[in-house]
Design a protein around this nucleic acid. Structure first.
Lengths: 223, 223
DNA sequence: ACTAATATTCAGATTTTCTTCAGAATCATT
DNA sequence: AATGATTCTGAAGAAAATCTGAATATTAGT
């Protein structure tokens, strides 16, 4: 799997590259607009990490260019400004995901895995876990034949759980993934969403796969 | 796990300390060069957070000193200047990681966990001892195929035992590592946790590797 | 047999998580 | 823009899990 990192901060791009290399990806770095365009012209990447704020040209221009070349599939935007505006613009222009700095490398890893999964499933990405079934394209969730109406947060939460199934997930990790920032130690909202998600899934006939691990977090598993 | 925070900005060092304390680390603060050196001389830390820009001496001097004393293992450099130069110098001098201000506390937490993991288990996240298996990333403990649910203290205790296997461990050392302070000679709590840990592991089918050494402490070994 | 150290039990104390709910924020519709 | 519906958030109290230390029993060393 090849990944292009478009990022001008050397320290950051290198630590990303080091990490991804250790995760068995092969990594290219482009630190300015021209290099980025050239690299995307001559290579085919499975995933492109794109910093919005670049010297010598707004990163969104690159994204626009990629879209014209039909190469915008698999782009994850990285941005220091956590502005909704940028996020919307980016996603409108065809980015697959959005990550605001600073972020955990493990978080980045999860997003890349998700993007690659989405790409390789040919747009028809369905995740199943026993009777539970999630169509990530249409965002429809079903338990057996029963369809489950989830709110956005509940859906994101479920997706995060299921793509990290059988692993212990800390509340900090959940906060980081769903809110993009730490929540100053107040996890009430997480508790509430988890409660609501549990209820909806169980009302639809599913078992409670969300196991609480006291003092540590949660684990999504069937045992 | 003991952590030393070398940082002159009171506001920052205190918020780091508060956070890390909430994350079950025990924290010391050194706000100047001399204190930092003294603390590292008299104590043994699992991780040291080192601000480069200190009053009364460059932080890199401290790092150099630590390296001479063979204590530079587990140092994370914190720096306002995000210069590649500093990073390279720091990593050359034996720092384990580099974090530029400002950062998320959860990010810091992840780095600390990584450093400690690397220190104790050479980066390997899975520790095995006969049928016993600990995945330190997911915090899942199994004996053969049976998974064992441990509480936080039990898990920390087991991790401490196993990373000091075949060595005699005093109760004071346990107190220091799990509570970060001495317990005023009252080890009742340790006794209780050890009893509970033993029971859980043996219920899962493991042998009792925790050997009591009368008057001395404990030794985790299979013979 | 005696003493000191460790093990076991167990009942609060403490911490964490769950649940409910009301107000705030967001979204859709007019 | 105003309205109403939905969703999100965080406070408050309840419930559950864990931690702690005292009381008691057992074991090791002399």
């Amino acid at each position: 799997m090849r990944i292009l990192v478009i990022e001008d901060e050397k320290a950051l791009s290198e630590s990303i590259s080091d990490y991804l290399t250790s995760q068995e990806y092969s990594c290219d770095i482009a630190s300015d607009y021209t290099t980025a365009i050239r690299k995307t012209e001559y290579n085919d990447y499975d995933c492109i990490l794109l910093d919005i704020t670049l010297p010598g040209g707004n990163g969104l221009h690159i994204l626009r260019q990629l879209k014209e070349d039909k190469k915008s599939d698999g782009v994850i935007i990285i941005s220091a400004k956590n502005s909704l505006d940028d996020k919307i613009k980016g996603l409108d222009l065809g980015a697959d995901d959005y990550l605001s700095k600073p972020f955990h490398l493990s978080e980045l890893n999860a997003r890349i895995a998700a993007v690659i999964r989405r790409k390789s499933f040919g747009g028809n990405s369905i995740i199943e876990f026993n009777a539970l079934r999630i169509d990530t394209r249409s965002k429809i969730v079903t338990v057996g034949d029963v369809s489950v109406d989830l709110t956005k947060k509940e859906y994101e939460l479920l997706l995060y759980f299921i793509s990290n199934k059988k692993r212990l997930i800390s509340k900090d990790a959940i906060a980081e993934h769903l809110w993009g920032a730490d929540m100053g130690g107040n996890f009430d909202s997480i508790y509430t969403h988890i409660k609501n998600l549990r209820k909806k899934l169980m009302d639809a006939g599913d078992a409670d796969y969300i196991h609480s691990v006291y003092g540590m977090g949660y684990k999504f598993t069937d045992q």
